[in-house]
Amino acid sequence: ERWREAGGRPPEGADEETALTAMLAAAYPADTATPPDATALAVLEETAEFLGAGFADLINLFQPERILVGGWAGLQLGTRFLETVEGYAREYALKYPAARVGIGLGTLGPDAVTVGAAILPLADFFARGGRRAEPETEAVEEQPAWATTVRERTAQ
């Protein structure tokens, strides 16, 4: 959408994945005789800076050892784009935590988030030693006498 707003020409009616593919093809044409689309390059550069600034916030707050970019968009953008993002992240982050974080592409494929979410119930099951969860019983809260009186009077 940002590419369209900046004057780019994604295919009409294209979904996000197809539009991203078109923008990458415009920015980095396979044919060396075709000039790169300056608008697509500018949008990718802007996106890399925003993503790098977001990573810098994560680095400063949580000081992770590693940040992995995945999903269909991250894998499609690839290492070329990731180098620019990493440069901005290191530029905007505090020097000490930035020197200790690795930023790379995930290797679990485009469905990594879905697979990770599917594992959560299994992790919970194993955390309970392979036992079923105890059914939750609803606590019956005893009502004060005045509430019963009000309920009886309003029912009449």
Rank of each mutant, 00 (worst) to 15 (best):
D124C: 00
V101S: 10
V115D: 03
L94F: 14
E138Q: 15
P36A: 05
P97V: 11
Q76C: 05
A139G: 09
P97Q: 12
P110G: 12
E91V: 01
A26K: 04
T39L: 10
V140E: 15
P97W: 12
E86H: 01
T18V: 06
K95W: 04
M23I: 02
R132L: 13
P135A: 15
F126S: 00
A30K: 13
M23N: 04
T149D: 07
R80D: 15
T79A: 15
E141Q: 12
V113L: 08
M23Q: 08
A99Q: 14
L68F: 12
E141T: 12
I103P: 10
G74C: 06
A53K: 15
P36G: 08
T79C: 02
L24P: 09
G71S: 06
G78Q: 06
L105E: 13
F126T: 03
E86Y: 01
L94P: 06
T84I: 09
T84N: 02
L105T: 11
D57K: 08
E83C: 00
I119T: 05
E16D: 11
L77A: 05
G87I: 05
T34M: 03
T148Q: 10
T84H: 02
F50S: 14
W72I: 03
T18A: 14
L58D: 08
A14W: 08
V43A: 11
L94D: 14
D31G: 06
A19P: 05
R80V: 13
R151Q: 10
A99E: 15
L20V: 13
L58N: 08
T149R: 02
A27D: 11
F126W: 12
A99P: 02
E141A: 10
R132P: 03
L105C: 11
T34A: 10
F62K: 06
I59P: 09
A40Y: 07
R66D: 10
T148R: 09
W72R: 13
R131T: 11
F55P: 07
T79M: 14
